[in-house]
Simulated scan of single mutants.
Amino acid sequence: MTLAACSTGSGTGADPDSTAKELTPERISIVIPAESALFWDIYVAEAEGFFDEFAVEAEITLTPGPAATLAALVGGAADVGTPFAEQGLAAIEKGAPLSIFAGQSNTILVSIVGSPGFEDADSLRGQKVASSNVDDTATILLEEWLEDEGADPDDIDKIIVGSSGQRYQALQSGAVVAATLTAPTDQLAIRSGFPLIEEISLPGVLTAHFGTDSFLENRPHAAVRYTKAIQKAVDWLLDPANKERAIEILVERAEVDQVDAEMTYDLYLSEDVFIAGSPIELELVGTALGYLEKTNRVEGSPDPADYVTAEILTGANE
């Protein structure tokens, strides 16, 4: 989607460097699918006052999972959301009025964690394994790993469970013998005695900041302010001097132990999950589209730029 030039102003010619006191506050409704380290940039922007700095009144709502996050966006109940990228892209392909306007998680990190006694691909044959969607990135990577290990993906019974936390609960209860988990839940599971079967780390867009077309077209100045706050939050998060406070924020929001948050922080920085400037890496968007091609949710070789509104980042970087 292409927009006219936009700035941080409120439509009254405000200077991009104006303080929050000089800007008309913009209320932005944000939906996230889980309390997870994937959304650390949003947590930091709220906790450290970066939304306030750019006169953004952030209304953050936790949904039951990625599908509910998309439903809120498509239904007009939210302006911005952070679903799993391939689910958002699939929705756009079906005509959903959405677009990626800022980057978020630029590394796909997924852990396959099992119950004691179920610690390799062969042991999962005929067993129930939890993942977040039938054909999402984590499930595709799970199936590819099974094939690499000489197992048939059709030999496992995939159970769809919305969030990483809910999948861990299913693992704890014995409802499944393995699950795809993301940080910090995977760290908690492993530390609690559930064996790590496989850790997957690949370049790719796992989550991104999606906006509704209505929001991006009618309130681009608000989207730019939101993006500036997120960019400042990422810069802050990447500064080792803020490690202790960053971990504290994750502990508070994701309700995880200190040690799990510390391990997640080190993992995320070492794997370059967040990138300064929150860029949209079109090559990585293309990787996500490639997963959609594998599951026949897009045809041909779609142009990643068609799923992106680049003008918001341009405005934020001016």
Rank of each mutant, 00 (worst) to 15 (best):
I60M: 09
L109C: 14
A189I: 05
K128N: 15
I108A: 02
E57A: 06
L38T: 07
L146G: 10
T139F: 05
G315V: 11
K228D: 07
L141T: 03
T69F: 04
L289A: 03
T12S: 11
V177Q: 02
Q172W: 15
E283I: 11
S163W: 06
E93P: 14
K94G: 12
A85I: 08
L202E: 13
K232C: 08
G286T: 12
V234M: 03
G150K: 14
E252A: 14
T227L: 00
F51C: 03
D122R: 15
L202F: 07
A55H: 00
K158A: 04
I197Y: 10
A241K: 13
G76K: 05
T207V: 08
E217T: 13
I60K: 03
M1P: 10
G13H: 11
D52R: 12
I108T: 05
L146E: 09
L313T: 13
E86P: 11
D136I: 05
E86D: 15
G117K: 12
A45K: 03
G9F: 06
L202T: 12
L289N: 05
E262Q: 09
V110D: 02
P304D: 09
T69Q: 06
A77W: 02
L196S: 07
A77I: 03
S99R: 14
K294N: 13
M1A: 09
T264M: 13
T19Q: 15
D120E: 14
G13K: 08
A151S: 11
T63K: 12
E199D: 09
E57F: 06
G286L: 07
D41Q: 02
